[in-house]
Computed example of a mutant assay.
Amino acid sequence: MTKDEEKFAGGVAVITGAGAGIGSGFARRAGELGMTVVVTDINGAAAETVAQQIRDAGGKADAMVVDVSKPSELDRLADEVYAKYGSVRLLINNAGIETIGYTWEIPADRWEATLNINIHGIIHGVRAFVPKMLASGEECWIANLASIGAFGQMPTQTAYMLTKHAIQSFSECLYLEMELKGAPIHVSSIIPGMIKTSIFNADAGEGEPAAAAGHRKAMHDMMANYGMDLAEGTRVMLEQVAANKFWVSSQPDMTEQTLAGRIQFLQTQANPQIADGARHLLEH
């Protein structure tokens, strides 16, 4: 029996933004491990499709429509899941969107959506679920989606990257709060590198400046050509979550390389620079 089977089989997993992308990969993998998976997404049809895939493969899954940008929706989710299933063993705060464009050109509505989904959705997911996890007294796991971008700089991906810097900081502090509390709740920061998902699809850029389309397509094509397989990436990362690792990477070498660059930047207090190779993407 693998570590993730040992820790997660038979438990309940709640995954936000699981109707597509990395969230759907985590949901299917949790189903394979024998978990009852609550697949949540703002798109109910997408959530139900993933839940049905899990059921068709012999697993157990429920689909729920949740808008993580609204704290009250996460309170409702926690109440309904605990009322139906009793307790939650694994919470993956995954829902997020990518936003591309110059800071001053991104419309206010798209800015607010990015901040509310990527930051507030994770913060309020934790706020809604942790009291119930603590009350259960059971061993639980919380995994928050950061990104390799949490340690980098990239003009015109500013909106996304600042949210991931924020989530990395939030997860570090949350880890220490659980330690201070003496709680049996393990916290992980999920750091995907380049994984094949739909995050850069053209239809995901609704509300962005028109000039963002070229950058979005270049990122989409690069991910499609060089990205890691979604199922393999989520399998590798869930194994690390089950092993109680805080740093959870799909591609550890990429994480280490990015961290080394970040450390050098901080130590030398250098001016921000566009990374090698990135300028080509920005010129599309």
Rank of each mutant, 00 (worst) to 15 (best):
G125T: 06
L145E: 06
E139F: 11
V88D: 00
T103W: 15
T16Y: 06
D221I: 05
G23Y: 08
M161W: 14
I122A: 12
G86L: 04
R279M: 13
V37H: 10
R55D: 03
F129R: 01
K84L: 03
N271P: 10
I92R: 03
G23L: 00
D56E: 10
Y175P: 01
T16K: 03
G96Y: 07
K245G: 09
S171E: 07
Y226D: 12
V130Q: 05
A46I: 02
I199H: 03
N116A: 13
A224G: 04
K60G: 02
D109H: 14
I97Q: 06
L77V: 07
T103V: 13
E48K: 09
A113I: 05
A224V: 08
V50Y: 02
N116R: 11
T103E: 09
A218F: 09
G193S: 03
T16N: 00
A9M: 08
F26E: 08
T268W: 01
G25K: 05
L145P: 01
N93V: 06
W247H: 10
M161K: 12
G86S: 02
Q264K: 14
E80V: 01
I100S: 03
R110V: 09
K132G: 00
A243I: 07
M161V: 11
A270W: 01
N94T: 08
Q240K: 10
E32A: 12
Q168T: 13
M154F: 14
V65D: 00
L282Y: 10
R76Q: 04
G227T: 05
E5H: 14
A166S: 06
I123G: 01
M254C: 05
K245P: 11
M1V: 15
D75F: 09
E208I: 13
G96A: 08
S250R: 03
E283H: 05
I190M: 10
A183E: 00
A113W: 03
A278M: 15
E112D: 12
R127S: 01
T163S: 12
